[in-house]
Simulated assay, not measured.
Amino acid sequence: MKGIQFEGLRDAGDPVSLAERYALEGADELVFLDITATNQRRQPLTELVRNIARVLDIPFTVGGGINTVADVEALLLSGADKVSINSAALARPEFINELARRFGSQCIVVAVDARQVAGEWQVMTRAGTTATGREAVAWCREAAERGAGELLLTSMSHDGTKSGFALELTRAVADAVPVPVIASGGAGQPSDFTDVFMAGGADAALAASIFHFNETALPALKSYLQSAGIAVRP
């Protein structure tokens, strides 16, 4: 499902079929986020994760509804390479430390959903429905210090708008933390990716709509990035 600023979700296709397609087209990694799991009090979809993992030969990150060490263990045993935590980490930041100690930082991604409010980037929780009062860069720094191996930074203000990534926010986070930053929210055209890598300082960029609805092809995007001097895998 894909929407705009986490609302107005519409069907984008079967997740297993899309995962297989993206792997064949050259995606470097796949991120599967069940964004309504926390609010609906659902457990992670381990069976679906298992089915997706069977068709992939690229790294696979899974998030949504993860609240316990057992949830993480079940997802990793189902085929996920990494897990993405968000609301549970905000509710209990030491959860990041616990997971990093148990499974290693390399598979712990902390997702940060940020919305611009009165000129400041505020962290949101529970699928972007609840303000936390935390400032985004400060929370990203804390998450990295607690053991997050990567940060998945989503600008809710840009999500689904296709107006480009939040470059200023991405650069501020990238400069503040020693771990990879994945920029998300706002991709609309190939130049948005060069902007977020060069001006935003992102280590990776995540996009959904432009791929789900066949607006941009992954091979064409990679060729564009290579021509712009950005190192990408073939």
Rank of each mutant, 00 (worst) to 15 (best):
A91T: 05
A91Q: 10
R92M: 09
F95A: 08
N97K: 14
N97F: 13
L99Q: 01
R101N: 13
R102F: 05
V109F: 00
A111Q: 04
V112G: 06
A114K: 07
A114P: 13
V117R: 07
V117M: 07
A118D: 12
G119E: 03
E120I: 07
W121H: 06
M124K: 04
T125D: 06
A127N: 11
T129S: 12
T129L: 12
T130I: 04
T130Y: 09
T130S: 10
A131V: 07
A131G: 12
A131H: 08
T132H: 02
T132Y: 01
T132S: 08
G133R: 01
E135I: 02
E135R: 04
V137S: 09
A138E: 09
W139Q: 09
A143T: 10
A144M: 01
R146P: 08
G147F: 06
G147M: 08
A148E: 05
A148Y: 04
A148C: 10
G149V: 05
E150I: 03
E150S: 13
M156P: 15
M156C: 15
S157P: 15
H158R: 15
H158T: 15
G160D: 14
T161A: 13
K162F: 14
S163F: 12
G164W: 06
F165K: 08
A166C: 13
L167Y: 12
